[in-house]
Simulated assay, not measured.
Amino acid sequence: MKIATKAALFSAIVFPGAGYFIVEKRVRGAVAFAITLAALSVLMVEAYHKAQIIAEKIVYGVIPLDIQVIREQIVLTPGHLSPETATYLSFIVGAVWLVGIVDCYRIGLAQQRITSVSNKTCP
């Protein structure tokens, strides 16, 4: 498998920024990894907080065990973050993911070109 394809697939499937380690751009990979991990951590803490509140309401009989009611409660339950902030963090994760895929593919192609040119010039 060509390095460009491998790097893009690693960034797409394994974790955002993982492909940078394939093309030996470790600092970029670490930055993409850190940004994604931080944003996902904040979103998971928010989801956990809301889930705890909703679970307590179900246990105490405040809301029924009905998927429609629970779905409404997810939207209505206040959390630590505003909905706009949660959306913003989600877009950051998506942007880092997509940029990482494209950039890893681009870097991999450049490395393939350099390798093929050096192989042609060497006897």
Rank of each mutant, 00 (worst) to 15 (best):
R26Q: 15
S41M: 03
A55N: 09
G100A: 02
N119C: 10
D103M: 02
P64F: 05
Q68A: 12
I53W: 08
G29Y: 07
E24Y: 01
V99T: 11
L43E: 08
Y88S: 13
K50C: 03
K120M: 07
A95H: 11
Y60E: 13
L89M: 11
F91L: 15
E46N: 01
V62G: 10
K57Y: 01
R106A: 01
I54K: 00
L76R: 12
V45N: 08
T36L: 06
V69P: 05
F21W: 03
Y88G: 12
E72F: 10
A7P: 01
R113K: 14
N119W: 08
G100N: 04
I63D: 08
E24T: 09
A47E: 11
Y105N: 01
L89C: 08
M1T: 04
I92H: 12
E84A: 11
G17R: 09
G17Q: 02
I35V: 15
F15I: 04
D103G: 03
A47T: 13
A86R: 10
S118V: 14
S118H: 13
E56Q: 06
R106P: 05
V117C: 00
S41C: 11
P16R: 08
V69M: 00
W97F: 12
T36K: 00
A39L: 03
L98Q: 03
S11R: 00
A4H: 07
G29N: 06
H49A: 09
L43F: 10
A110P: 07
V23Y: 11
T85G: 04
S90I: 09
I107F: 08
A39E: 02
V31G: 13
L40Y: 15
I13N: 05
P64N: 06
L65V: 09
I54C: 02
P83A: 13
I22R: 10
Y88R: 14
K120R: 09
I67L: 15
A51R: 12
W97P: 06
L43P: 06
F21C: 00
H49K: 11
D66N: 12
L40N: 12
L81D: 01
L98T: 15
Q112V: 09
P64G: 07
L9R: 11
V45R: 06
Q73D: 10
V93Y: 06
I92P: 14
Q112K: 15
A95Q: 14
T115G: 12
T115D: 15
E24P: 00
L81T: 02
V45C: 06
M1Y: 03
P64R: 07
G17K: 02
C122D: 09
P78E: 13
F33H: 05
T77K: 02
Y48F: 06
V102F: 13
V27K: 14
Q68W: 10
G94F: 05
Y48I: 08
A55S: 12
Y105C: 04
A38S: 08
R26L: 14
R106V: 04
S90Q: 12
I74Y: 14
K50T: 02
L89Q: 04
